[in-house]
Amino acid sequence: MKKILLLTIIFLAAALGTASAQLINGAGATFPYPLYSKWAYEYNRATGVRVNYQSIGSGGGIRQVTAGTVDFGASDAPLGAKEVEDAGLVQFPMAVGGVVPVVNLAGVGPGSLKLTGDVLADIFLGKITKWNDEHIAALNPGVKLPDAKITVVHRSDGSGTTWIFANYLSKTSPEWKGRVGFGTAVNWPAGVGGKGNEGVAMYVKRMKNSIGYVEYAYAVQNKLAYAKLGNKAGNFVEPSMESFQAAASNADWKGTPGFGVVLTEQPGKDSWPIAGATFILVKKSQSDCKKVSEVLKFFDWAYRNGADMARSLDYVPVPPAVYGLMEAAWASEIRCDSQPVWGK
């Protein structure tokens, strides 16, 4: 009996102990989940503050932060300035990633196939159906292209990756823009759907003569043959941390209301054309002042100390010039009991 009592006391003490430590809750996009978990782990070791991030999807993240059930939300697709305003949120980018077209073609290794945005759009529209189509051949003199049907692989689940990819196709093909458009899920004119980046990577790896699109890290990890893409400057560039970084640094962060910068088809001769940022959303008007300042401290810490951790996980950190902008936005927009929270 004494033992049980002792155990109960220990458990209660433990429960109280965890409750008294600061806990920040976040929910949203699946793409940055590995990065946010890593940051949360390191931040906890450095400060003792616990950050709990649930990767339930961007849609769920936006809903939960708007409803106030979590302290921050995360979305892969930027919300428009009006959406951010209507929902009473502040949006800021945390990391940049690249989407890469991957192919499974006998004899075609990574980077040896060249594609442009309009040809890629025609393939995903189902207009170009064979690999030896003249449009593909014209871009790839010297590459042996088989007389085989193209199997298009796309995401079956709603995803920020799809948003970025379809946004790129909308910019490069008027027909794609008119018929399909862009969003986290679209009405695919052709192909099979794989669930998640890993699903698409798996399908492309297995199905001969297929083409799909995945986040860069998945192309690297699965050793898939990626295609080079023609960018806005007319150069064919390889997907790499450097070319994603180039796209991010050429973007106009300052002039975009709500910081909802879209990083597709960015200018610059080294820019990878299908890049995108992943965003954090925090409510503008807060009631728990201590909590919100903890949340902002965490992201401030991540901006300043998290870059190397991001690179080690194949994410590109946001350019240093952006931090200042973001923190100025926190100071001017986030209020707790009508008082500014950041930079007091």
């Binding site: 999807g57 961007s58 849609g59 936006i62 709603g158």
Partner: peptide, 23 residues
């Protein structure tokens, strides 16, 4: 040919459905 089912559509799209009409 590839197809879909009610439960597959739900599993695929529920997490990212943001608009009220979509949900």
């Amino acid at each position: 040919d590839p197809a879909t089912s009610i439960s597959a559509t739900l599993a695929n799209e529920f997490t990212e459905a943001f608009e009220d009409l979509y949900l």
